[in-house]
Design a protein around this nucleic acid. Structure first.
Lengths: 127, 127
DNA sequence: CCGCATCCGTATAGATACTG
DNA sequence: CAGTATCTATACGGATGCGG
């Protein structure tokens, strides 16, 4: 189930579930982006879209709902027309986001080594 | 594609791809487990199985191949019968694994807050 | 026997079209 | 603009096969 329905998903060591929410494909990117400060739904979508291929509306919704239910993201829906919803990190969410960002930055810094390893790997099993 | 075929998956900012490998469902658990030291294939499978629902052989194989190709995991196949294959972290992999473990430990520590948030969330939208 | 490849069925991720 | 319904693609697990 991963990031799908916020409620689903018993029958597993509960902390692993939260870990999966935090490390999920879009969860990672949402958390990092929200470290910048609050964002509207579309802002998030656009911001994430800028790096590689973007999120679909559905996945962003699901991800946000899951993170909100876990208490990592705060949702502030203003009753105006057109609707305006702002998302931000809770204190808990900020702690998680910082760790996730550190991991993301590490990955970027080490990309060179990874590419090199991949070349070696692919070359080694060149048929 | 996530953790599937080690080679697949162009058309995306490359570091995000590595991040997905590292944070993938089984990648996380493999990396953490290998911080303990080298493990055989079956040892990994059993060790991971102990927490919640375990990995299938297929997914463990895929995960290990992907991580090996990224230069995070070292594979040492001894030409004996019955076959024995030992997996261990590379220097690069150890760096990643430590960050991942930190995140996992944070998650365990904060489970209480998460559970509380979930209760509030579920109660708030009690139909 | 163990590590791993492959085929298939199913659950879930994910894209697109639609609603208020 | 924010979110939902519907449909398709794919990740994942299970069973099977096979070489060492």
């Amino acid at each position: 189930m991963a990031v799908s329905d916020p409620r689903a998903g018993e029958a597993m060591c509960p902390y692993r579930l939260v870990l999966e929410h935090v490390t999920s494909r879009w969860g990672v990117l949402v958390l990092i982006q929200l470290l910048d400060g609050p964002h509207r739904f579309s802002e998030l979508r656009r911001a994430i879209g800028r790096v590689g291929r973007g999120v679909s509306e559905k996945m962003l919704t699901q991800t946000l709902q899951t993170l909100e239910r876990d208490g990592l993201v705060h949702r502030d829906a203003k009753p105006v027309i057109p609707p305006r919803v702002d998302y931000s990190l809770t204190v808990l969410g900020r702690e998680a986001a910082q760790q996730v960002r550190a991991l993301a930055e590490w990955t970027r810094d080490r990309m060179g080594d990874v590419e090199k390893a991949r070349l070696a790997y692919d070359e080694a099993r060149q048929a």
